[in-house]
């Protein structure tokens, strides 16, 4: 008999015991270990996903910040460039203003120098003319220059027209017939007498004349009474000459500025 029923029963029992033992010692622990590992891996993967999401978020934030910084930097650069440009213009204007001031000052100095030169020239010319005239009159006439001047003054007195004469008469009356006669040089006695006579005749009264010497009257004589004055001197001619010389110099100056117009515009 190939089948031993006791052995069959024993083997069934053995097998059932084996199933129980294997379940206890093999399947449960192994399946538990596999499940635990899978859970752990799932947890790690979830964690990795979370970290990846966080990293992505941080990267985005960082990117945004970078963009913001770039934008701010560009704005700052633009602002600085504008400020630099404005400062550049301001400095240029300032420099131009300083240059203009310097030019104006220089022109003023030049004008002042020219004026001084004019004055010096006119004085020199006056003196030269006086000297030349005196010399010429001395050489040409028989009388001295002073004599001639006295004569001219006397003839002027005699030639006085009505209006001027009337005002002088009124002035003489107001000063009770006293008058001052100033001359650049000391008049000789003959001339003093001739002038006294001429005055007496012209105003038909006795004039009390006080003769004074006044060097600023270049080769001239003047009669002053109560604010009224009658005079003749070379100073008038010289003033006219001065005017014409001054005009000439001004014309020269204008022609200079035309040749070099607005020099600061080149800067």
């Amino acid at each position: 008999m190939l089948i031993d029923w006791f052995t069959v029963g024993a083997q069934i029992l053995n097998f059932l015991i084996l199933v129980w033992l294997m379940k206890r010692f093999l399947y449960k622990p192994i399946l538990h270990a596999i499940d635990a590992r899978e859970k752990r891996i799932a947890a790690e993967l979830a964690d990795a996903d979370k970290k990846r999401a966080e990293a992505r978020k941080e990267r985005d934030e960082f990117q945004n910040k970078n963009n913001e910084i770039d934008r701010k930097r560009a704005a700052l650069l633009s602002q600085v460039a504008d400020e630099a440009k404005a400062e550049h213009h301001r400095l240029l204007d300032e420099a131009r203003q300083v240059a203009d001031d310097l030019i104006a000052k220089r022109q003023e100095m030049m004008r002042s120098d020219a004026h001084n030169l004019n004055q010096a020239i006119s004085l020199q010319i006056q003196q030269e003319i006086f000297s030349v005239t005196r010399k010429a009159l001395t050489d040409l006439a028989t009388t001295s220059l002073e004599e001639r001047l006295g004569e001219v003054f006397i003839s002027r007195l005699r030639e006085l027209d009505g209006q001027a004469k009337a005002s002088l008469v009124a002035a003489l009356r107001a000063s009770s017939g006293s008058a001052h006669l100033r001359s650049a040089f000391e008049l000789p006695a003959e001339q003093r007498a001739a002038i006294q006579n001429a005055l007496n005749e012209t105003f038909s009264s006795e004039i009390n004349v006080q003769f004074e010497s006044a060097p600023h009257l270049i080769s001239g004589i003047e009669l002053v009474t109560n604010g009224q004055k009658i005079s003749w001197s070379i100073d008038g001619y010289l003033t006219s000459l001065e005017k014409s010389v001054g005009k000439f110099l001004k014309e020269n100056e204008k022609s200079d500025t035309k040749v070099n117009p607005n020099p600061q515009a080149k800067s």
């Binding site: 190939l2 089948i3 031993d4 029923w5 052995t7 069959v8 029963g9 024993a10 083997q11 069934i12 053995n14 097998f15 059932l16």
Partner: peptide, 9 residues
């Protein structure tokens, strides 16, 4: 006997 026992199981 063993195979029969397993088959019976």
């Amino acid at each position: 006997s063993t195979t029969a026992a397993l088959a019976l199981c």
